[in-house]
Nucleic acid binder design. Structure first.
Lengths: 151, 151
DNA sequence: CTGCCACTTCAAGTCAACTTGAGGTCAAGC
DNA sequence: GCTTGACCTCAAGTTGACTTGAAGTGGCAG
Protein backbone atom coordinates (compact mmCIF):
# COMPACT_ATOMS: atom_id res chain seq x y z
CA UNK A 1 0.00 0.00 0.00
CA UNK A 2 1.63 3.16 -1.20
CA UNK A 3 1.30 5.96 1.28
CA UNK A 4 1.19 9.42 -0.22
CA UNK A 5 2.05 12.61 1.56
CA UNK A 6 -0.61 15.32 1.34
CA UNK A 7 1.73 17.42 -0.78
CA UNK A 8 2.12 14.57 -3.19
CA UNK A 9 -1.61 14.09 -3.46
CA UNK A 10 -1.99 17.82 -4.01
CA UNK A 11 0.60 17.76 -6.72
CA UNK A 12 -0.74 14.71 -8.51
CA UNK A 13 -4.37 15.70 -8.32
CA UNK A 14 -4.06 19.43 -8.69
CA UNK A 15 -6.18 19.87 -5.60
CA UNK A 16 -4.65 22.23 -3.03
CA UNK A 17 -3.69 20.77 0.35
CA UNK A 18 -6.14 23.10 2.08
CA UNK A 19 -8.91 21.66 -0.03
CA UNK A 20 -7.83 18.13 0.74
CA UNK A 21 -8.10 18.89 4.46
CA UNK A 22 -11.46 20.45 3.85
CA UNK A 23 -12.64 17.40 1.96
CA UNK A 24 -11.44 15.17 4.75
CA UNK A 25 -13.35 17.24 7.25
CA UNK A 26 -16.44 16.90 5.09
CA UNK A 27 -15.98 13.16 4.91
CA UNK A 28 -15.28 13.07 1.21
CA UNK A 29 -11.89 11.52 1.56
CA UNK A 30 -10.04 9.87 4.41
CA UNK A 31 -6.40 9.69 5.37
CA UNK A 32 -5.19 6.15 5.90
CA UNK A 33 -2.92 7.18 8.71
CA UNK A 34 -0.43 9.67 9.97
CA UNK A 35 3.30 10.04 10.11
CA UNK A 36 3.58 12.15 13.18
CA UNK A 37 1.04 14.86 12.53
CA UNK A 38 1.12 14.42 8.82
CA UNK A 39 -1.64 12.76 6.89
CA UNK A 40 -0.89 9.79 4.74
CA UNK A 41 -3.19 8.91 1.88
CA UNK A 42 -3.56 5.76 -0.09
CA UNK A 43 -3.07 6.21 -3.83
CA UNK A 44 -6.75 5.31 -4.26
CA UNK A 45 -7.57 8.79 -3.02
CA UNK A 46 -6.61 10.08 -6.45
CA UNK A 47 -9.38 8.11 -8.08
CA UNK A 48 -11.73 9.35 -5.45
CA UNK A 49 -10.74 12.92 -6.12
CA UNK A 50 -11.36 12.38 -9.82
CA UNK A 51 -14.81 11.12 -8.93
CA UNK A 52 -15.43 14.15 -6.79
CA UNK A 53 -14.34 16.49 -9.57
CA UNK A 54 -16.60 14.62 -11.94
CA UNK A 55 -19.53 14.97 -9.60
CA UNK A 56 -18.89 18.66 -9.27
CA UNK A 57 -18.79 19.08 -13.00
CA UNK A 58 -22.11 17.30 -13.19
CA UNK A 59 -23.49 19.89 -10.82
CA UNK A 60 -23.62 17.87 -7.63
CA UNK A 61 -22.85 19.66 -4.41
CA UNK A 62 -20.17 18.25 -2.15
CA UNK A 63 -22.86 17.06 0.22
CA UNK A 64 -24.59 15.18 -2.54
CA UNK A 65 -21.30 13.66 -3.62
CA UNK A 66 -20.57 12.58 -0.08
CA UNK A 67 -23.82 10.63 -0.04
CA UNK A 68 -22.74 8.77 -3.12
CA UNK A 69 -20.05 6.93 -1.26
CA UNK A 70 -21.21 4.02 0.80
CA UNK A 71 -20.00 4.00 4.41
CA UNK A 72 -17.35 1.46 3.46
CA UNK A 73 -15.94 3.94 1.00
CA UNK A 74 -16.89 2.23 -2.23
CA UNK A 75 -18.84 4.37 -4.67
CA UNK A 76 -22.52 3.58 -4.40
CA UNK A 77 -24.07 5.60 -7.11
CA UNK A 78 -27.79 5.98 -7.43
CA UNK A 79 -28.70 5.31 -11.03
CA UNK A 80 -31.93 7.21 -10.73
CA UNK A 81 -30.10 10.25 -9.47
CA UNK A 82 -27.68 9.88 -12.33
CA UNK A 83 -30.45 9.84 -14.93
CA UNK A 84 -32.06 12.80 -13.31
CA UNK A 85 -28.81 14.71 -13.49
CA UNK A 86 -28.34 13.71 -17.09
CA UNK A 87 -31.80 15.07 -17.88
CA UNK A 88 -30.95 18.21 -15.99
CA UNK A 89 -27.80 18.55 -17.98
CA UNK A 90 -29.73 18.00 -21.13
CA UNK A 91 -32.07 20.86 -20.42
CA UNK A 92 -29.17 23.08 -19.57
CA UNK A 93 -27.37 22.15 -22.74
CA UNK A 94 -30.41 23.03 -24.77
CA UNK A 95 -30.72 26.39 -23.06
CA UNK A 96 -27.09 27.12 -23.55
CA UNK A 97 -27.18 26.13 -27.17
CA UNK A 98 -30.04 28.51 -27.85
CA UNK A 99 -28.19 31.18 -25.99
CA UNK A 100 -25.00 30.58 -27.89
CA UNK A 101 -26.83 30.99 -31.17
CA UNK A 102 -28.32 34.20 -29.89
CA UNK A 103 -24.95 35.50 -28.83
CA UNK A 104 -23.36 34.61 -32.12
CA UNK A 105 -26.05 36.37 -34.00
CA UNK A 106 -25.93 39.40 -31.77
CA UNK A 107 -22.19 39.61 -32.25
CA UNK A 108 -22.58 39.55 -36.02
CA UNK A 109 -25.72 41.62 -36.23
CA UNK A 110 -25.18 44.87 -38.15
CA UNK A 111 -27.98 46.82 -36.45
CA UNK A 112 -26.70 49.74 -34.40
CA UNK A 113 -28.54 48.57 -31.32
CA UNK A 114 -29.33 44.99 -30.51
CA UNK A 115 -32.77 46.01 -29.46
CA UNK A 116 -33.58 46.61 -33.11
CA UNK A 117 -32.45 43.20 -34.21
CA UNK A 118 -35.32 40.78 -34.64
CA UNK A 119 -33.18 37.76 -33.82
CA UNK A 120 -32.02 39.35 -30.64
CA UNK A 121 -35.58 40.26 -29.79
CA UNK A 122 -36.66 36.69 -30.29
CA UNK A 123 -33.92 35.56 -27.96
CA UNK A 124 -35.02 38.13 -25.47
CA UNK A 125 -38.60 36.97 -25.59
CA UNK A 126 -37.48 33.44 -24.97
CA UNK A 127 -35.40 34.60 -22.05
CA UNK A 128 -38.32 36.55 -20.69
CA UNK A 129 -40.59 33.54 -20.79
CA UNK A 130 -38.00 31.53 -18.97
CA UNK A 131 -37.40 29.16 -21.87
CA UNK A 132 -33.70 29.74 -21.70
CA UNK A 133 -33.61 31.37 -18.32
CA UNK A 134 -31.27 30.30 -15.56
CA UNK A 135 -31.26 26.67 -14.51
CA UNK A 136 -34.17 25.81 -12.31
CA UNK A 137 -32.46 23.21 -10.20
CA UNK A 138 -29.25 24.22 -8.56
CA UNK A 139 -27.56 22.64 -11.52
CA UNK A 140 -24.34 24.28 -12.45
CA UNK A 141 -21.81 25.77 -10.22
CA UNK A 142 -18.82 27.78 -11.28
CA UNK A 143 -15.54 27.15 -9.67
CA UNK A 144 -12.34 29.09 -9.39
CA UNK A 145 -10.32 26.19 -10.69
CA UNK A 146 -7.07 27.41 -9.39
CA UNK A 147 -5.57 24.12 -10.53
CA UNK A 148 -2.32 25.45 -9.32
CA UNK A 149 0.71 23.76 -10.82
CA UNK A 150 1.91 23.24 -7.27
CA UNK A 151 5.11 24.89 -6.16
CA UNK B 1 -45.41 55.90 -20.27
CA UNK B 2 -46.78 53.10 -18.16
CA UNK B 3 -45.55 53.27 -14.60
CA UNK B 4 -45.30 49.93 -12.85
CA UNK B 5 -45.29 49.39 -9.15
CA UNK B 6 -42.43 47.27 -7.83
CA UNK B 7 -44.86 44.52 -6.91
CA UNK B 8 -46.16 44.50 -10.43
CA UNK B 9 -42.69 44.27 -11.88
CA UNK B 10 -41.95 41.46 -9.45
CA UNK B 11 -45.05 39.62 -10.46
CA UNK B 12 -44.57 40.05 -14.17
CA UNK B 13 -40.89 39.26 -14.20
CA UNK B 14 -40.80 36.66 -11.48
CA UNK B 15 -37.97 38.59 -9.83
CA UNK B 16 -38.57 39.26 -6.12
CA UNK B 17 -38.91 42.86 -5.01
CA UNK B 18 -35.86 42.53 -2.80
CA UNK B 19 -33.87 41.52 -5.83
CA UNK B 20 -35.19 44.45 -7.81
CA UNK B 21 -34.00 46.81 -5.09
CA UNK B 22 -30.69 45.04 -5.08
CA UNK B 23 -30.39 45.40 -8.85
CA UNK B 24 -31.21 49.07 -8.60
CA UNK B 25 -28.54 49.53 -5.98
CA UNK B 26 -26.07 47.80 -8.28
CA UNK B 27 -27.08 50.06 -11.14
CA UNK B 28 -28.57 47.30 -13.25
CA UNK B 29 -31.99 48.84 -13.39
CA UNK B 30 -33.37 52.26 -12.50
CA UNK B 31 -36.70 53.42 -11.20
CA UNK B 32 -38.23 56.15 -13.31
CA UNK B 33 -39.67 57.87 -10.28
CA UNK B 34 -41.44 57.52 -7.02
CA UNK B 35 -44.95 57.73 -5.74
CA UNK B 36 -44.23 58.82 -2.22
CA UNK B 37 -41.54 56.38 -1.16
CA UNK B 38 -42.52 53.79 -3.65
CA UNK B 39 -40.54 53.11 -6.76
CA UNK B 40 -42.14 53.35 -10.13
CA UNK B 41 -40.67 51.48 -13.05
CA UNK B 42 -41.20 51.92 -16.73
CA UNK B 43 -42.44 48.81 -18.48
CA UNK B 44 -39.09 48.74 -20.30
CA UNK B 45 -37.55 47.42 -17.12
CA UNK B 46 -39.07 44.05 -17.94
CA UNK B 47 -37.02 43.87 -21.09
CA UNK B 48 -34.00 44.88 -19.12
CA UNK B 49 -34.62 42.17 -16.58
CA UNK B 50 -34.92 39.64 -19.37
CA UNK B 51 -31.57 40.82 -20.64
CA UNK B 52 -30.07 40.47 -17.19
CA UNK B 53 -31.42 36.94 -16.82
CA UNK B 54 -30.03 36.15 -20.20
CA UNK B 55 -26.64 37.46 -19.28
CA UNK B 56 -26.66 35.40 -16.14
CA UNK B 57 -27.49 32.28 -18.07
CA UNK B 58 -24.55 33.05 -20.30
CA UNK B 59 -22.33 33.10 -17.26
CA UNK B 60 -21.84 36.83 -16.90
CA UNK B 61 -21.63 38.20 -13.39
CA UNK B 62 -23.92 41.06 -12.48
CA UNK B 63 -20.95 43.40 -12.65
CA UNK B 64 -20.15 42.29 -16.15
CA UNK B 65 -23.76 42.71 -17.14
CA UNK B 66 -23.83 46.20 -15.67
CA UNK B 67 -20.94 47.16 -17.92
CA UNK B 68 -22.94 46.13 -20.94
CA UNK B 69 -25.29 49.02 -20.49
CA UNK B 70 -24.01 52.41 -21.53
CA UNK B 71 -24.38 55.17 -18.93
CA UNK B 72 -27.46 56.38 -20.79
CA UNK B 73 -29.11 53.07 -20.13
CA UNK B 74 -29.32 51.70 -23.64
CA UNK B 75 -27.73 48.31 -24.13
CA UNK B 76 -24.25 48.71 -25.51
CA UNK B 77 -23.02 45.27 -26.05
CA UNK B 78 -19.46 44.60 -26.97
CA UNK B 79 -19.57 42.28 -29.96
CA UNK B 80 -16.11 40.97 -29.26
CA UNK B 81 -17.14 40.09 -25.74
CA UNK B 82 -20.21 38.44 -27.12
CA UNK B 83 -18.21 36.25 -29.51
CA UNK B 84 -15.83 35.35 -26.77
CA UNK B 85 -18.69 34.31 -24.54
CA UNK B 86 -20.23 32.32 -27.35
CA UNK B 87 -16.96 30.44 -27.75
CA UNK B 88 -16.87 29.89 -24.04
CA UNK B 89 -20.37 28.58 -24.09
CA UNK B 90 -19.44 26.31 -26.93
CA UNK B 91 -16.66 24.71 -24.96
CA UNK B 92 -18.88 24.33 -21.96
CA UNK B 93 -21.59 22.74 -24.04
CA UNK B 94 -19.13 20.22 -25.39
CA UNK B 95 -17.92 19.32 -21.93
CA UNK B 96 -21.42 19.01 -20.67
CA UNK B 97 -22.47 16.86 -23.57
CA UNK B 98 -19.62 14.43 -22.91
CA UNK B 99 -20.57 14.39 -19.29
CA UNK B 100 -24.21 13.78 -20.03
CA UNK B 101 -23.31 10.80 -22.18
CA UNK B 102 -21.15 9.46 -19.41
CA UNK B 103 -23.90 9.88 -16.87
CA UNK B 104 -26.43 8.22 -19.11
CA UNK B 105 -24.17 5.29 -19.60
CA UNK B 106 -23.37 5.01 -15.93
CA UNK B 107 -27.07 5.06 -15.15
CA UNK B 108 -27.73 2.26 -17.58
CA UNK B 109 -24.59 0.25 -16.94
CA UNK B 110 -25.33 -3.21 -15.58
CA UNK B 111 -22.06 -3.64 -13.72
CA UNK B 112 -22.53 -3.88 -9.96
CA UNK B 113 -19.99 -1.15 -9.32
CA UNK B 114 -19.30 1.73 -11.64
CA UNK B 115 -15.64 1.30 -11.06
CA UNK B 116 -15.79 -1.85 -13.14
CA UNK B 117 -17.43 -0.17 -16.07
CA UNK B 118 -14.96 0.73 -18.81
CA UNK B 119 -17.07 3.63 -20.03
CA UNK B 120 -17.23 5.03 -16.55
CA UNK B 121 -13.50 4.58 -16.19
CA UNK B 122 -12.93 6.45 -19.41
CA UNK B 123 -15.11 9.28 -18.16
CA UNK B 124 -13.21 9.29 -14.93
CA UNK B 125 -9.88 9.49 -16.68
CA UNK B 126 -11.11 12.36 -18.77
CA UNK B 127 -12.31 14.12 -15.65
CA UNK B 128 -8.99 13.50 -13.95
CA UNK B 129 -7.09 15.05 -16.83
CA UNK B 130 -9.34 18.05 -16.77
CA UNK B 131 -10.78 17.42 -20.22
CA UNK B 132 -14.28 17.67 -18.90
CA UNK B 133 -13.36 19.23 -15.61
CA UNK B 134 -15.09 22.22 -14.18
CA UNK B 135 -15.35 25.31 -16.34
CA UNK B 136 -12.14 27.26 -16.31
CA UNK B 137 -13.67 30.69 -16.62
CA UNK B 138 -16.23 31.63 -14.07
CA UNK B 139 -18.73 30.44 -16.60
CA UNK B 140 -21.76 28.93 -15.00
CA UNK B 141 -23.44 29.99 -11.89
CA UNK B 142 -26.30 28.25 -10.22
CA UNK B 143 -29.13 30.26 -8.89
CA UNK B 144 -31.83 29.66 -6.39
CA UNK B 145 -34.47 30.65 -8.89
CA UNK B 146 -37.18 30.95 -6.35
CA UNK B 147 -39.34 32.27 -9.17
CA UNK B 148 -41.97 32.76 -6.59
CA UNK B 149 -45.44 32.99 -7.98
CA UNK B 150 -45.77 36.21 -6.05
CA UNK B 151 -48.25 36.40 -3.25
C1' DC C 1 -59.19 61.98 9.56
C1' DT C 2 -57.39 57.69 10.64
C1' DG C 3 -55.43 53.44 10.39
C1' DC C 4 -53.69 49.82 7.57
C1' DC C 5 -50.09 47.74 5.40
C1' DA C 6 -47.42 47.51 1.28
C1' DC C 7 -43.84 49.69 0.63
C1' DT C 8 -39.33 51.93 2.35
C1' DT C 9 -34.12 51.92 4.30
C1' DC C 10 -30.08 49.93 6.19
C1' DA C 11 -27.55 46.56 8.38
C1' DA C 12 -26.78 42.04 8.92
C1' DG C 13 -27.33 37.23 7.74
C1' DT C 14 -27.00 33.17 4.42
C1' DC C 15 -24.90 29.70 1.44
C1' DA C 16 -21.17 26.86 -0.70
C1' DA C 17 -16.75 25.91 -1.23
C1' DC C 18 -12.86 27.19 -0.11
C1' DT C 19 -8.71 30.22 1.50
C1' DT C 20 -6.00 32.59 4.87
C1' DG C 21 -3.69 33.45 9.14
C1' DA C 22 -1.92 32.78 13.66
C1' DG C 23 0.28 29.92 16.47
C1' DG C 24 1.87 25.02 17.26
C1' DT C 25 4.34 20.37 16.24
C1' DC C 26 7.67 17.17 14.92
C1' DA C 27 10.55 14.14 11.36
C1' DA C 28 14.55 14.75 9.14
C1' DG C 29 18.92 16.78 7.81
C1' DC C 30 23.16 18.81 9.57
C1' DG D 1 21.00 17.76 19.74
C1' DC D 2 19.13 21.48 17.33
C1' DT D 3 17.20 23.90 13.70
C1' DT D 4 14.22 24.03 9.91
C1' DG D 5 10.11 24.26 7.61
C1' DA D 6 6.49 21.56 5.84
C1' DC D 7 2.86 20.10 7.90
C1' DC D 8 -0.79 20.62 11.67
C1' DT D 9 -5.37 22.85 14.00
C1' DC D 10 -8.91 26.05 14.55
C1' DA D 11 -11.12 30.23 13.71
C1' DA D 12 -12.16 33.64 10.76
C1' DG D 13 -12.40 35.73 6.19
C1' DT D 14 -13.85 35.70 1.11
C1' DT D 15 -17.04 35.98 -2.89
C1' DG D 16 -21.48 36.76 -5.34
C1' DA D 17 -26.05 37.14 -5.27
C1' DC D 18 -29.29 37.65 -2.68
C1' DT D 19 -32.61 37.36 1.66
C1' DT D 20 -34.15 38.72 6.14
C1' DG D 21 -35.37 41.65 9.90
C1' DA D 22 -36.22 45.73 12.43
C1' DA D 23 -37.93 50.08 12.35
C1' DG D 24 -40.03 53.82 9.64
C1' DT D 25 -43.39 56.11 6.08
C1' DG D 26 -47.10 57.55 3.48
C1' DG D 27 -51.04 56.65 -0.19
C1' DC D 28 -55.54 55.44 0.01
C1' DA D 29 -59.94 52.87 1.64
C1' DG D 30 -63.36 53.66 4.90
Amino acid sequence: MIALDIAEVAQRSGVPASTLRYYEEKGLIAATGRRGLRRLFDAAVLERLALIALGQTAGFSLDEIAKMFAPDGRPRIDRKLLSAKADDLDRTIRRMTALREGLRHAAACPKPSHMECPTFQRLLRKAATGAIGPADQRSLRSRQTKRRKTR
